[in-house]
């Protein structure tokens, strides 16, 4: 088995779920690095080089709202779910559950 192939397949499978992971942690205000640490602590694999651009994209798409905090020594950009983002997150969460149960059935995780 080509280890590169395995790696590619795995990251392809994970790609869509990263967004869900990010959204799940943004019910409270977070800045980029705190979110990265947060996710790493919870054993979610995401690269800094993937996370930061992803935050920006979700921000432009209106799922997140962001603001610069300039009160501290250096400015930090904080993100959290927007109203629309909360709604979308709920729907995606449901979608995720559906996917898991569908795949579970297929792969024999549950016998019903």
């Amino acid at each position: 088995m080509d280890p590169n192939l395995m790696q590619n397949l795995k990251s392809e499978l994970r790609r869509g779920t990263q967004m869900l992971a990010v959204l799940s942690q943004l019910e409270k205000m977070q800045y980029g690095y705190s979110l990265l640490q947060d996710l790493t602590e919870k054993n979610v694999q995401i690269e800094a080089g993937t996370l930061y651009p992803l935050l920006r994209r979700l921000d432009t798409q209106g799922l997140l709202e962001s603001e610069w905090d300039t009160s501290e020594s250096r400015p930090r950009k904080y993100y959290r779910l927007s109203k629309e983002g909360i709604q979308i997150y709920e729907e995606l969460k449901q979608e995720w559950k559906d996917i898991v149960s569908e795949i579970e059935k297929l792969t024999g995780g549950e016998t019903k």
Binding site: Y31, G32, Y33, Y52, W68, R74, K77
Partner: peptide, 13 residues
């Protein structure tokens, strides 16, 4: 904007 973000993120790291 990206310049500010990157600078802030790298300094945080």
């Amino acid at each position: 904007e990206v310049k500010k973000e990157l600078r802030s993120n790298i300094e945080d790291m």
